[in-house]
């Protein structure tokens, strides 16, 4: 199988309004795709549709196949299995994505032991803890044994996002969806998290669907980009082409704006 995720003619509607229309794209195993869009573009809804997390009020048409399994209309049981093995998501705001009352170790431990149970192994106690520590080290968190016992509010925003990534990795997904994962972070932290994501994706051979409004951020991590505007893909292609020589007027305004700030930084005011 050459494609891991195949989205064909995806249309999302609610109460007569079309939110995403006729969107098609595919992601091959290990491929890194950037979904660029501003607010109202439908980029987050697309991510939710792919992971089977659409709100009930939104109707989906078309087809989304994930590892050969149709997602649209699939029963919850199937989706649960898909989300546990094929796909994992990292959200924008790590503070709300983590349970504030649960220690970090336990939050990572739950998906981890679930995966092991599915593989027919029962993991607990020491063995589980050392696996959790391994994951925390994998996302380059300092002092993992302290963080293991910390609550989400006791660590910094960047560290929380690393924990969220560790949680996503716990189920060894073949596709990682990252929805604006660095937007809530500081610039220096963003650079570190991007570097981490880049390294992990290569190391683990995961495919990545990176969703963001921030062109330079997408450019730094994706090989191929899709530009969404009001639910429609206006342009798609290799990042090096679309972001350097955009063809669609909308992409051109975005690239121009991004370049203006870039130029200002280079001193060319």
């Amino acid at each position: 199988m050459t494609t891991h995720l195949d989205v064909r003619g995806l249309t999302l509607t609610t109460q007569g309004r079309t939110l995403v229309s006729n969107l098609s794209f595919a992601i091959a195993p290990g491929e890194r795709v950037g979904l660029i869009g501003e607010s109202g573009s439908g980029k987050s809804l697309t991510a939710m549709a792919v992971s089977g997390l659409l709100p009930a009020a939104i109707r989906a048409q078309g087809s989304i196949t994930l590892a050969g399994q149709e997602v649209i209309g699939a029963p919850g049981r199937v989706l649960d299995r898909l989300r546990g093995t094929e796909i994992a998501i990292v959200f924008q705001e790590p503070l709300t994505a983590l349970d504030p009352l649960m220690r970090i170790g336990r939050q990572i431990g739950i998906p981890l032991s679930r995966r092991h149970r599915r593989d027919g192994r029962d993991l607990s106690g020491r063995a589980l803890e050392s696996e959790i520590l391994g994951l925390l080290e994998k996302v380059r968190l300092p002092d993992p044994s302290r963080i293991l016992r910390a609550h989400p509010w006791e660590i910094s925003g960047g560290q929380r996002q690393r924990v969220a990534i560790a949680m996503a990795l716990a189920c060894r997904p073949k596709l990682l969806i990252a929805d604006e994962p660095t937007t809530a972070l500081d610039v220096t932290t963003q650079a570190e998290v991007l570097k981490l994501l880049d390294a992990l994706v290569k190391e683990l051979g995961m495919a990545l669907l990176f969703i963001s409004h921030d062109l330079p951020v997408v450019a730094s991590i994706a090989e191929r980009v899709i530009v969404l505007r009001s639910g429609e893909a206006v342009e798609a292609g290799p990042a090096g082409e679309v972001l350097v020589q955009p063809r669609h007027p909308y992409t051109q305004t975005l690239v121009e704006a991004a370049r203006a700030f870039d130029d200002a930084l280079s001193g060319g005011r």
Partner: peptide, 25 residues
Amino acid sequence: TSEILRAPAHPYTQRLLASVPRMPA
């Protein structure tokens, strides 16, 4: 601004400037 961007003196400023993602050339 122009001078600091051209030659940031403090290590933090240097790190900050290096962290800003840029568009591909």
